[in-house]
Design a protein around this nucleic acid. Sequence first.
RNA 1: GCAUUCGUAGCUCAAUUGGAUAGAGCACCUGACUACGGAUCAGGAGGUUUGGGGUUCGAAUCCCUACGAGUGCACCA
Length: 611
Amino acid sequence: MHPKTPVGPLNRPHRMDLQAQLKAAIGQAITTIYGETVTDITLQPTKKEFEGLYTFVTFPLTKALRKSPVEIGQTIGQWLQENTDVVSRFNVVQGFLNLSVADSVWTDLLTALRTETPAPAHRGSVMVEFSSPNTNKPLHLGHLRNNFLGESVSRILEANGFDVVRACIVNDRGIHICKSMLAYQKFGQLPDGTWETPESAGLKGDHLIGKYYVLFDKAYKAEIEQLVTEGVDKEKAEKQAPLILEAQAMLRRWEQGDAETVALWKQMNEWVYAGFDATYRKIGTHFDKTYYESQTYLLGKEVVEEGLQKGVFYRKDDNSVWIDLTAEGLDQKLVLRSDGTSVYITQDLGTTDLKFNDFKNDRSIWVVGNEQDYHFQVLFSIMRRLGRPYAEGCYHLSYGMVDLPSGKMKSREGTVVDADDLVSTVTEAARTAADEATKGKVDEFTADEQDILFQMVGLGALKYFLLKVDAQKRMLFNPAESVDVHGHTGPFIQYTYARTRSIMRKAAEQGLAIPAELPAVSFHPSEQQLLFLLSQYTQRVAEAGDDYAPSYIAQYAYELAKTFNQFYADVSILNEPDARMLTVRLALTDLVGQTIKKAMGLLGIEVPEKM
RNA sequence: GCAUUCGUAGCUCAAUUGGAUAGAGCACCUGACUACGGAUCAGGAGGUUUGGGGUUCGAAUCCCUACGAGUGCACCA
């Protein structure tokens, strides 16, 4: 919190923090005029249709001061104008006091924003778990939303002073992998007697394994159908089909460590991981730590034991172990089966302990879809009941499903959008868009440079499309809109960045330099708007960190780009005859470019020098 | 049925966390010194914020209720 500081030319809050300056001034005005102390003064940006930058709402003061909202506004406004050098003008509309800021303050602000980049205070460490793929099929659109969110939140937290451990828990065991393995055993041999590999098939490893998963499903369905025509009812048929029995048998062999089964499992997983790695590299994410469920699925039983001793859990007559969470508004929940084997939550209890023991993080975040909201409520409640000191630092970053215009994505119906295919599609769309742009700079690029650019722009479009929406909301993925480069899109922001860079290059060619201390000028409204947005960057990053919300940053980056383009249309930069004005506008342009780059960086989106 | 999330322009999303006449983009019209980069900008049209109550000086936001949608309610993961 900012200490109460006298307002005046000699001593006032930091010049970078315009809001704090104004708040302090208003606080002092109220104290001086009315003899009252108001602790939380809130300001809001002034609506566009009124003159002013920040608005102070006086309605809440009417009771304490026993004056009309208008009178309070007039009095405070008058005082601020006369007694501070921050407020240059003011107007009052009902209970709204609109304050305009003096040019000198703007100059100070721009200077400070350009020269002072305070590093965030160290806030501790956090683990962000995301992606969490299954090893039986390639990544799809849903994973992309998850990955982009996880990567972006990681970067936002780093910007807020956290050390981040990116963690991935791979679901590499279970019946679904056995299905792929079994199909491979049955159908993987080629006519020449050799066995199919990613190389011989010309497929990424994850896609090859996905292919066999589909083959299993087809053959399995055929068996069910056959049984049904023989008069078996469907439910029974699903359980009796030879293929599913074989897959279950294979899972048992795997659990017993059967050499041949484990060897096949390892081989197939290697292929899958190679495929995943390629995708992760392409979309620009990596993990500091990967946990494999094959190594963690037996964890958690000692936690159950501990819970029983502490009386947090109880054992039923049939030997199963439960926890009663009705006091928290939840249900009774099974934590260990009657045969002593684990359920999903048992494993998570163990894995959570493992994660905190491994890295001693202050916080831990799970980026997992909202169908698991209840699971995480239960998990965190149990951790609190067990007295885990880290329980309060646990957070489920829950996100909504991605729908297609045709409806839900369903792997069984083949409506899943494949991640690799999608990346290729958006990259090609960027190429097409560049062809259509009348004044793009891609002609200056080599073929390789173009490939890099189109991937950057395509991924920019895709990432921005998925990140601009509030994570918790279910969203509609419209393929046509996701590759759009106009309007509220990633490429629009990338374009704006390229524009700022183009101007800065030209300025450098002309030998124009920007001095550390900027000359005094009078600011155009669109310049004030830009400066205002620039001054809010740090705060928006902090809010995005507090709420784990990349969408805040996405919205901000768009606003900034849009405002810059307005500014660009309103005034001349390099053609400005007044040298002082030109200098200030260059400084603004430069700062906008840097800020766009930083903001997009927090989203995991790169920006090009030219496009 | 119970729990939970959500419902804003034709469509996709915002709304500084309770503030002014609810804002952007797409789509649709109209315009911008052959351009400091037109992948841009300006303007027009488009709304009973699902309906109905309540709290408040003030509600898209908080409470209640009805309707509609998603998700979860396995000794699956």
